[in-house]
Design a protein around this nucleic acid. Structure first.
Lengths: 149, 149
DNA sequence: ATGGGTGCAAAGGATTTGCAACATT
DNA sequence: AATGTTGCAAATCCTTTGCACCCAT
């Protein structure tokens, strides 16, 4: 309980810092993002939180995650052609997408573009930069190598 | 006619270089990509080519563009959360996405990551790198500024 | 006649929309 | 009361799938 409160406080703080009113649903969703760096999809967040908030709807998860990314409380990741996912880690880092299994991983050591504030390029306002790597993850490579032999 | 042949020859050459058998549909689609750097979606390619190839189907456009990106004959761009688009320009450059109008633009001057060949990072095989910028384009900024006044 | 390529129709899945119910100030 | 938030159901839109046809080797 005490532990939960700690993380929930961090989630609430993040929301308030980003000018988002902390409803029960929003705090739970933000808390999930801040404790699960698995780049969850809407479906994953929805499924994970349903037992906790029994009336939760997918629509709310959609609305909330979109709001978070608009207010820069979380990052919307469009690396997967099939579905959007979200990242509660707002520090600059590179995302890697496995074309075989669809997994999204972090590459922390790589030189990710830093976005200190919005900049202007040829009249366009740029307020977000994301570097995506794509390929085949170690796990899938092993699996594929095993199949051939 | 002569002009058409020139570009079609370039398209055919690109396909052959990438190990793709040049059917009529594939050559036309590749030719479209190599003469329209507008980051077209499947729908746009389909609509543009329908008058020319009257039996063309969306399925073929889907299949073909996917094949192109798999064989690195074109680039699949996942910057837009709503739909995938494609780029016939395979030189490294940055893509900018306007969150207002959904337009995808090139930033050629920016330092895009270069991908000479596949590299390995922590056991993962990386064969593609894309840098995405997101924000509001010059046109939309003007339009929005005009509305306020 | 075999394999690859194409196209149609249907299915699938992710996301959005409209609207009513609800909570909070 | 007013405003913002939530949740349900339906709609929408993009993409994939299954299958039949067709073409070229």
């Amino acid at each position: 309980m005490a532990r939960n409160n700690i993380t929930h406080n961090a989630a609430t703080k993040r929301l308030l810092d980003c000018g988002i009113k902390p409803s029960i649903q929003r705090v739970e969703i933000m808390n999930y993002l801040m404790t699960h760096f698995t780049h969850p999809t809407v479906e994953e967040v929805y499924t994970a939180l349903c037992p906790k908030i029994r009336t939760l709807s997918r629509t709310t998860v959609y609305n909330t995650l979109r709001l978070f990314s608009e207010r820069k409380a979380a990052l919307m990741i469009t690396i997967d052609e099939h579905r959007v996912c979200y990242d509660g880690d707002t520090h600059p880092h590179v995302h890697f997408y496995c074309k075989e299994c669809g997994k999204v991983m972090d590459f922390m050591d790589e030189s990710a573009p830093t976005m200190p504030a919005a900049i202007e390029i040829e009249g366009n306002l740029v307020d977000e930069m994301q570097l995506y790597y794509k390929g085949v993850c170690a796990e899938c490579r092993q699996r594929m190598a095993a199949k051939v032999s």
